[in-house]
Design a protein around this nucleic acid. Structure first.
Lengths: 273, 273
DNA sequence: CGAGCTTGATCACAGGATCTTCACAAGGAA
DNA sequence: TTCCTTGTGAAGATCCTGTGATCAAGCTCG
């Protein structure tokens, strides 16, 4: 087989970005409690991680927060806000910055945008609109950073490389097919039991027909290849009547009595539907 | 054809490969002559290529224009403007879209942004501000594309020269056409598997139609020329069900004991939503 | 302004690789 | 035991990619 399929290239691609699949992190620098509260409620529903601060924050502090987006009221910064904005944008080019501040002149808005802000909203404004503006800005960023999101992970003897759409054991490719890889990746990313319907829907993209055994068949193929490449390990566990769970465990071949209940990870199953 | 620059294509596909050098192309769909005139004067000074149209334009027509940005007055489209906006954004994800229209409700603005617009300006507005908003939207793209080395690189026996828009082996030109070169450059710059849709979008500049085989055909032509110029090497690898990956590898033709190379397996994307 | 050449878009077909589907065996639950 | 769920193996249906050819559009050169 072709070398590339057989041996995992050594170079490490995905220079791990921090913002993996976690929730979007947004900081709001604003003093209006009412405004931030409304925003908080709305964002909570959307699932974003919101942090609100009403006093100036140093640029370095912002950096350590690993934000995805920043909503800034220039009034909070006061004089020197232009320099501040410029430094923030220069320091974190990948950060989505939305200025949300009181009445301003055209010249001011132009200046803000030229310094690196992605959008300018004038207060008072509707929370929903602000959110969609932030979303629009993030959409661009995400598109730009897509390639960075792939991160190779290693669990047990297994190495999953999304950039190559392949899994390896000791640098040896498992020769997974597209679908097999997707399922393995999905399973390896969650440490809970996944129902067949869930797996099917997330991999195939649409609802599973009643009685469809595709997932079972693929799990079998996966186990086959995993066993071949990494004998002595058990990766995919069956939860009778529920689905499958991924967790690397050395085979307790010999009489070791208790083989059961392998570490009930947090948030075990979802229980019956 | 001359080995060197097939003359930098007027504009660049989204790949931004050479976008940096060519003028930005902007289309304004608006009926206000005064407004567009002011804009024209201003943009002329900035060096952008502006085109103004006061009647609806089909999405396909927009695609052929190879735009960088679009400023749209929804009033020009009339009923069905939402669908229009949606189709435009879906078809050209890399296009910067700014809605510049009359008075609107919060709900309308939110809807527009959610459908894919990058920004929303309310008329009447200042030309200078509109320009800076368009710039802000474009900035993201360019930033994403900046990292591209306008620098010649050599991999395997292959030398890619963006400055000449051509690839060489032993100083011998491969006589690639513009599009062939763009694809080769894109592939050679990333060391991961690229899905066809991704390749298409970054080279052609808009979304790939379902079932389009263009990428395959070009890859075939590329392989042909690569094989002709650099026999004994394998550059583009197929990942069944996923796409292609670039990696120079000497052909392990002869009886080397090792088995065949049945195309590197690979998993497919994480489903594209 | 037209002939001739180049480039890019589509098709149809062939050979494989991958998925689905089945029927049956094996393992759990009651 | 008896019913239901899951593991297995295999065959046929599908889907995917490589390839060669055709056609339209754009450009160059007379």
């Amino acid at each position: 087989m072709s070398p590339e399929a057989t041996e995992a290239p050594t170079r490490s691609p995905a220079s791990g970005t921090q913002r993996s699949s976690s929730r979007l992190r947004l900081l709001v620098l604003d003093r209006d409690p009412g405004f931030t509260q409304v925003l908080a409620n709305r964002l909570d529903a959307v699932g974003w991680e919101l942090r609100t601060v009403s006093n100036p924050v140093t640029v370095d502090a912002l950096v350590t927060m690993r934000l995805n987006a920043l909503v800034l009221d220039l009034a909070v910064i006061g004089p020197g806000s232009w320099e501040y904005l410029e430094r923030v944008c220069a320091r974190m080019p990948a950060l989505a910055v939305v200025i949300c501040t009181g009445p301003s002149s055209v010249a001011q808005r132009v200046r803000g945008l030229r310094l690196g802000a992605d959008a300018w909203m004038t207060k008072p404004c509707h929370a929903e609109e602000l959110i969609s503006v932030v979303e629009a800005a993030l959409r661009r960023h995400r598109r730009a950073e897509m390639p960075e999101l792939v991160q190779t992970t290693t669990i047990g003897e297994l190495t999953v490389r999304p950039d190559l759409y392949q899994a390896y054991v000791n640098g040896q490719s498992l020769e997974l097919t597209a679908r097999e890889f997707e399922i393995l990746q999905l399973l390896s990313q969650s440490d809970r039991v996944l129902r067949r319907e869930e797996i099917y829907e997330r991999v195939w993209g649409y609802a599973m027909a009643h009685g469809d055994r595709s997932v079972d068949v693929f799990v079998r193929k996966l186990r086959q290849k995993l066993r071949a490449g990494s004998p002595g390990w058990n990766y995919i566990h069956t939860h009778f009547g529920v689905g499958y769970r991924f967790a690397p465990e050395p085979d307790v071949e010999a009489g070791a009595g208790c083989d059961e209940h392998p570490a009930p990870r947090a948030g075990s199953a979802l229980l019956g539907v």
